[in-house]
Design a protein around this nucleic acid. Structure first.
Length: 791
DNA sequence: CTCCCCATTTTTTTT
DNA sequence: AAATGGGGAG
């Protein structure tokens, strides 16, 4: 082991600025790195690990690195792998939940879980709660299942068990009681929810001294990404690992804390500094992403927040282009303008995937999609259903889970009558009664049922059991293929009108399993890693750690590798491992990846990403900031941070737009521009409206003058014979009877000749937006204004 | 058991 | 406007 100074010129440190280098080479003490947007946060984190390994200070087994998302974990491993010939697979790098899963599999006995416990995702949890409440006659009016779910998850994230819940009112007592029953049900069925993964691990660490001590001896360095997003339980969990002699390296940005609504506590940063007596705080303020007009806007905006640790981004890049601001009369016009702008960007050479359209809420994507679609601009929407959350996939997974564990009642109920096999609510109810009476699983209770219903149930159970026998010893791929056929899922979807997509997804499931087997090494050459007395994997002896080039190359990092049982060497079946993988990593959102497409997503989803050109849309009071956040001050500050995140996504060009009116919940809402505009530096902005409209020459305003491929022009619906059937095509109202069309020349007594831009409303409410060359753009009520068409 | 109609409800999301 | 969920009818 050599002192850090010796390696000060290490190639690892070459491309780091002084602050980054300082962070990477910090001594073994607790540290907080305040990493602004685009300041090279991931790079510092990964290089820190590489540095610790390369200088021989520690071995791969001594690192615990935690992230929130699988994507971040994977990226960390891939980058680390690129820096050092180290086996990242044996290292504890992963998501909070992934690592907890690994921990619980290793210590499943101490955690009082079956080795092959399965994980309930949010959907599963909700249906488990509904089932439980029904069974115990809980009034769903008084205790909606969703709220109960929220209550339970919230409690667990605070580290609270049912007996620790507040029971001052009758209602509190009832809720705690339901929570208790839920816990018992999960335990009985051998399943855990996401929060339980964390809480259970935490409790094992807290209560079992040798385990805690073992891990404390082992993990010399604990690194946490996105620390500002940790909740109370996650922070407590980290504290369990941080014994004397260990150092916690927390990286975060309080200005990018946008998940308070789901329990994240920015306060953890201050608590960490206080409780760990953190002496090393490093701010990474050098931004490598954006030009200064963009950064100045971000800085000026976020300066309006009162509760900040304080940080200001700077860049060496010049001012760059101004931030462009656009005001549209309607949400459709906003979208139309944006599409035109995007087409121009693409013509000027910007790749489409470098253009992002951000919005506050998912509902806003529809109008934008329509415009993009009508203009035939390829786009990709992030968000919505993920692969493993699709109904047909969940059904398939339920069958697979029943093969693995027949007592998984959630899965049992999901597929007992899917595809339909004559087992209705009544039969299921009877079965549930029988199961409760005998306090056994639904599967085991089937014997007790009688009659025609009983026969159907028996046939179902028999089918599952036969399937289990039949798939014995088969590969994962074969198991899934057999299941798809025997369950009747494929036949069912084949018979369905538009079941084609679903069949495709089911086939995709086979592929997913196949690549899972290859990646995880669950196939032929699965090698059990050596295991120490406590069941944790030890990669190599300390002497050989770190730089051994003879280590085998690993093709793909594996975020959810689980060690085999310490005593028996028993390891998870590929099937059980795959099911865990499916629950922990719900898969990509939408297919059609690879295509060069404009990226549409919420601001939340954009966190951590960057693009050459970014459109932030719908910047209106009530929408962004959202009206639900305006009630309290913290809410507004979080919205502002959200806006900060949005702005800092842009590298070169940033557009901010809003609309005077917007169709929301089927009603036109009139909005004022967002207060955030008042918080941006005027010098960095360029208003495209109203002063600077580009109507000259073409005589067409926004949206007009469409390419000949789409003759219908703006207000798309006026075009007849629309052949673009599938994606979202909004319903357009019938042509109003005032006889005006966008693009028409009209004459007004006072304003003279002008061009009709937009038409709104009908009958007495009909309005037109008209551009008069000498008077600018006007909105006129058609019932009042006297307009004559100019031939 | 299935189908259809009516009523309700709309932030943000990862694991 | 649209999607979801529950209840009632066939």
């Amino acid at each position: 082991m050599f002192p850090p100074e010796v390696a000060a010129d290490s190639p690892l440190l070459q491309h780091l600025n002084p602050e980054q280098r300082a962070a990477v080479t910090l001594p073994n003490e607790h540290a907080l790195i305040l990493a602004g947007a685009g300041s090279g946060k991931t790079r510092v984190l990964t290089t820190r690990i590489a540095w610790l390994l390369a200088t021989g200070q520690i071995g791969p087994g001594n690192v615990l690195a935690v992230t929130f998302t699988n994507k971040a974990a994977k990226e960390m491993m891939t980058r680390l792998q690129a820096m050092l010939p180290v086996n990242v697979r044996g290292m504890w790098i992963g998501t909070f939940h992934g690592l907890c899963n690994r921990f619980l599999r290793a210590h499943y006995k101490l955690a009082a879980l079956p080795q092959s416990f399965q994980i309930l995702d949010t959907q599963d949890q909700l249906s488990a709660i509904k089932r439980l409440m029904k069974q115990h006659n809980v009034d769903e009016e008084r205790f909606p299942a969703k709220e109960t779910q929220w209550y339970i998850a919230g409690a667990k994230e605070e580290g609270l068990r049912p007996n620790m819940m507040e029971t001052r009112t009758e209602e509190d007592r009832r809720k705690a009681e339901i929570y208790q029953l839920y816990e018992e049900q999960c335990q009985r069925e051998g399943v855990v929810d996401f929060a339980e993964l964390m809480l259970r691990s935490y409790e094992v660490l807290r209560d079992i001294d040798p385990i805690r001590e073992h891990y404390r001896r082992r993990f010399h360095h604990i690194l946490i990404d996105e620390f500002q997003d940790t909740n109370k339980l996650q922070y407590a969990w980290i504290k369990m690992f941080a014994g004397s002699g260990n150092s916690v390296f927390a990286v975060g940005d309080d200005d990018q804390s946008i998940y308070a609504f789901r329990g994240a506590r920015v306060g953890n940063m201050a608590d960490f500094v206080r409780e760990f007596d953190v002496r090393h705080q490093i701010k990474l303020e050098q931004n490598y992403r954006s030009f200064s007009n963009i950064l100045d806007s971000a800085n000026a905006l976020i300066a309006h927040n009162k509760t900040r640790l304080g940080k200001n981004l700077r860049t060496d890049q010049g001012p760059g282009e101004p931030v462009r601001v656009y005001e549209a009369p309607t949400d459709m016009a906003e979208a139309q303008w944006m599409v035109e702008e995007i087409r121009q960007l693409v013509r000027d050479g910007t790749p489409r995937h470098e253009v992002a359209v951000l919005y506050r809420s998912n509902a806003q994507s529809r109008v934008i999609e329509t415009s993009l679609f009508n203009a035939a601009v390829p786009y990709r929407v992030y968000g919505g259903l993920r692969f493993f959350e699709r109904a047909e996939i969940k059904h398939a997974l339920s069958y697979l889970r029943l093969l693995e564990n027949p007592h998984d009642d959630t899965s049992f109920l999901r597929v007992v009558n899917f595809p339909a096999r004559g087992i209705g609510a009544r039969s299921v109810e009877q079965l549930q009664d029988a199961a409760r009476a005998a306090s056994c699983s639904l599967h085991d209770a089937v014997h007790a049922t009688t009659g025609k219903a009983g026969a159907n149930l028996a046939a179902f159970v028999q089918k599952i059991d036969a399937m289990r026998a039949e798939t014995e010893g088969l590969t994962l791929r074969e198991i899934i293929e057999v299941m798809l056929q025997r369950s009747g899922l494929v036949d069912h979807y084949k018979a369905e009108r538009d079941g084609g997509d679903r069949i495709e997804n089911l086939e995709e499931l086979v592929n997913a399993a196949e690549s899972f087997v290859t990646q995880e090494g669950f196939g032929r050459d699965a090698v059990a890693l050596p295991v120490d007395e406590l069941g944790t994997t030890l990669r190599q002896s300390p002497a050989s750690q770190g730089l051994d080039p003879s280590l085998p190359e690993i093709n793909e990092p594996s975020p959810d590798y689980v060690p085999p049982d310490a005593e028996t060497g028993e390891t998870l079946s590929p099937l059980a491992a795959f099911l865990t993988h499916a629950a922990l990593e719900s898969g990509d959102n939408q297919a059609q990846a690879g295509q060069d497409a404009v990226q549409l997503m919420t601001v939340h989803a954009a966190k951590g990403l960057e693009f050459d050109c970014v459109f932030v849309t719908g910047l209106e009071e009530g929408l962004f900031p959202s009206e639900r956040s305006l009630a309290d001050y913290d809410g507004l500050e979080e919205e502002r941070r959200l806006m900060y995140v949005a702005i800092t996504r842009a590298r070169q060009r940033l557009y901010l737009s809003y609309s005077q009116t917007r169709l929301l919940h089927g009603q036109t809402r009139y909005n004022v521009k967002s207060r955030f505009f008042d918080e941006l530096p005027e010098a960095a902005l360029k208003w495209l409206t109203p002063k600077n409209q580009n109507f000259g020459g073409s005589a067409f305003g926004f949206g007009m003058g469409y390419p000949s491929s789409r003759p219908s022009g703006y207000s798309g619906g006026y075009g007849k014979g629309d052949t673009f059937a599938s994606p979202p095509v909004p319903q357009q109202k019938a042509t109003p009877d005032h006889g005006l069309r966008p693009g028409m020349q009209v004459f007004h007594a006072k304003f003279g000749e002008g061009t009709v831009l937009t038409l709104e409303g009908s009958g007495m409410d009909a309005r037109a937006q008209i551009n008069f060359p000498r008077h600018g753009q006007k909105w006129l009520a058609l019932s009042v204004a006297k307009l004559t068409p100019v031939p």
